[in-house]
């Protein structure tokens, strides 16, 4: 106790070389707390306003019939069934193509590939590809999948659309996979190798299971983005008025964002039978439910795999 200063010394800073200046530091602290609070809530309020406005607009149309009806020239009778089914097809096909390719490429680049000029060039290009505007992917898809691969895809088909979206999310999945793998400490790899494990045994048993929640979350978020994409699908040639459901991979198709875009572009008129604006709002609500559903699956899977391991 003899070495501790008496409390009173706190009030006589003149003796020390420190200008503590607590009031002004606390003031600055408060300012930044408020500023970051404002930044958070500006975004939240705008989002909430959009959401409420859309939901209110959608109410006149939102019904079971809206989901089970085909498009119609009469706004009240028009539904999103082909678009919803098309979106679900795209979702599944895109995932089936993009997930194995993206995760495989990510594992190769992070765990196997040597660090040389070639792999670094690949790395930079993948980062660039992740930033390429989606319409460019649409043009690529149009040329490659619709025209060159016509015998396989059948032209402007649901397969061509899914492959285009898969290309779009591939760089993001690769990057997510690499980041998730990189977050696993190297000491675990060393532990595996030191026991005589091969690289694949180490990855399969110790690295990949730990990285999987992160990979799944990133993948589902990327695919959610892709499902909301309109531009590449328009370029690839999704139809806007379809009165049948896709039956095979070469079927013509439409998707929710395309349908919404189509309805939004119609003129606003007083006649409720001709006013498709409400349909657009209801379509947005359906699309958002699909996306929220996917995000919940992402959270569910992440929690499941995190608990599942010891």
């Amino acid at each position: 106790m003899s070495t501790s200063r008496p409390i009173a010394d706190l009030d006589s800073p003149s003796e020390s070389n420190f200008n503590v200046a607590l009031p002004s530091r606390h003031g600055l602290d408060k300012i930044f707390e408020v500023a970051s609070w404002v930044a958070t809530f500006v975004g939240l309020i705008v989002l909430a306003a959009l959401l409420i406005d859309t939901v209110v607009d959608s109410l006149p149309r939102l019904s079971w019939g809206f989901i089970t009806n085909f498009p119609s020239t009469r706004a009240v009778a028009a539904g999103v069934l082909p678009a919803l089914v098309g979106t679900l097809w795209l979702l599944v096909l895109t995932t089936l193509v993009a997930f194995p390719l993206g995760v495989g490429a990510g594992i190769y680049l992070e765990e196997y590939a040597p660090d040389n000029l070639f792999t670094r060039a690949i790395e930079i290009n993948i980062s660039n590809l992740a930033a390429v505007p989606s319409i460019i992917y649409g043009l690529l898809g149009l040329q490659v999948f619709v025209r060159w691969l016509l015998p396989v895809t059948g032209g402007r088909s649901i397969l061509a659309g899914a492959l285009t979206l898969a290309l779009l999310v591939l760089p993001i999945i690769i990057i997510t996979t690499r980041e998730s793998l990189r977050a696993i400490p190297g000491s675990l790899r060393q532990a595996g190798f030191a026991l005589g494990a091969t690289r694949w045994q180490v990855i399969r048993e110790h690295i990949f299971p730990l990285a999987l929640p992160g990979i799944l979350t990133g993948t589902i978020l990327a695919i959610s983005r892709a499902i909301g994409e309109t531009a590449p699908l328009i370029v690839v040639g999704a139809a806007t008025f379809i009165t049948f459901l896709p039956t095979n991979l070469q079927s013509k198709f439409t998707a929710l964002p395309i349908q919404i875009f189509n309805w939004v572009s119609r003129p606003v008129v007083a006649n409720p039978d001709k006013n498709f604006q409400f349909n657009a709002a209801a379509g947005i609500v359906v699309l958002m439910v699909v996306l929220l559903g996917m995000n919940s699956i992402a959270i569910f899977l992440r929690n499941k795999f995190q608990k599942g391991r010891a």
């Binding site: 675990l188 532990a191 048993e205 299971p209």
Partner: peptide
């Protein structure tokens, strides 16, 4: 190793892994 680096698995599996892969 310097820092203990058990696998993120059960105690049993930590031991069994090396034996199994070999």
């Amino acid at each position: 190793f310097q820092k203990p680096n058990p696998f993120s698995k059960t105690i049993y599996e930590n031991i069994a892994f090396g034996a199994r892969i070999n």
